[in-house]
Design a protein around this nucleic acid. Structure first.
Lengths: 229, 229
DNA sequence: CTGTTAGCGCGTTCAT
DNA sequence: ATGAACGCGCTAACAG
């Protein structure tokens, strides 16, 4: 009969360990100025009581929210879903992101963003204000969407862009850029076919909207040119 | 130059509208006892200031967290992902859940649960304590996992189970059960083939671990029996 | 109908 | 090295 002693707060831990709330807080956040013995004693109470800090409360007192927003193109995601031909957006990257986040105590929250409407500012802004995430991850084609970047910046939300363009596009936003070597990959693939003796090699590129697609085409073209010379 | 007037709180709205915090709160939550004109005035301020309530704060004051936890089998999800043969768990149901949640102002958070370890209680418990979700959605094979149901119940988290068994399994948990007519579907498919003149019809069932699979086999068997009689 | 008071759980000054 | 006091943004009792 698990007694319904839910909501084990920092208070209970403090009482159980016979210390003040602050000390518990310090232990939780791995802060200095706590005697090893104290730390241990508190940790013991935490474990025994099965205490877990409430992210809501943590967020309230200026700390992190431990939430990361994963922004995806709404229209495309839904269309793929309906067509059952899903490009596996999750399997491709988001699940990996989830796992990595989990490793560090973070949660990934998926948000479908609709750039075609003028609601963008309002919708994305609302999501940021409501969730107050510690960061965001952009996937194509949003990675290069200046307005999204602007909104994120305005809300002081750091972001990482997957398959994003460089800074050539009007020295604007910072943020981390993550990308595989698209051009190199395409070159490699093309080279491989050429080495096998093929000469007439086509290339199916993705939608022009995706910069990635362009880079790959570049790689293919380059290798084809090199081969015919 | 958007002045960095981030963090528009309920206070700003109250001041702007010239009312008390409470009134603003009432408008936000669509509570009664607010004169239409007041409501309008407050709403106007909300819109103009672009105010959006912080879910963290809302959760803090006993209200909802507007978060729904979607529980999936960790091992299977990761395995599928690695094998690139993803069963499209997201495209199948979770994306649909996301959209529906979004419609009502809720967010869906995916959580991979590992039932093989004895950490279950601790891990799931931690997630519940940290996030304090308003509800949870279980997918097979977790839908029938008694321990998970127990933990959810203990944390007072309502849940919906997809493809779950009935109450035959030891009159336990409440919670909503959602399922398609698996047996009926299998019957229908089998019937169709029979009508086409086929007689030797096989059936590839899913893992025995999934009750769903059993139901489908039942449907197939039933129809085959009916046909041969 | 509306405003006032009191916390929610936690981090963050300050004292000690 | 530790504790007390305050505030975060919001809602839930109670006044009025």
């Amino acid at each position: 009969m698990a007694r319904r002693r839910l909501a084990v707060t920092i208070k209970h831990v403090a009482a159980d360990a016979g210390v003040s709330l602050q000390t518990v807080s310090r232990v939780i956040n791995n802060e200095p100025n706590v005697r090893p013995e104290m730390r241990e004693r508190v940790q013991a109470s935490i474990d025994r009581l099965g205490y877990v800090p409430s992210i809501a409360a943590q967020r309230m007192s200026g700390s992190k929210s431990y939430l990361i927003l994963a922004l995806n193109d709404r229209e495309r995601t839904i269309a793929d879903w309906r067509a059952r031909q899903g490009t596996d957006w999750v399997d491709q990257m988001l699940l990996g992101g989830m796992l990595e986040c989990a490793e560090h105590g973070y949660r990934l929250i998926f948000e479908l963003v609709d750039t075609h409407e003028d609601h963008l500012e309002r919708e994305l802004g609302a999501a940021l204000a409501a969730l107050q995430p510690d960061g965001a991850i952009l996937t194509p084609p949003h990675s290069d969407n200046q307005e999204i970047l602007r909104i994120l910046t305005r809300h002081h939300v750091p972001y990482a862009r997957i398959g994003a363009l460089g800074d050539e596009d009007g020295g604007s936003p910072a943020g981390v850029r993550v990308s595989m070597d698209d051009e190199g990959g395409a070159r490699l693939a093309t080279r491989h076919l050429i080495d096998l003796g093929h000469r007439r090699i086509g290339f199916i590129s993705g939608p022009a909207e995706y910069r990635l697609a362009g880079w790959r085409v570049d790689g293919w073209r380059a290798e084809m040119a090199a081969a015919s010379s």
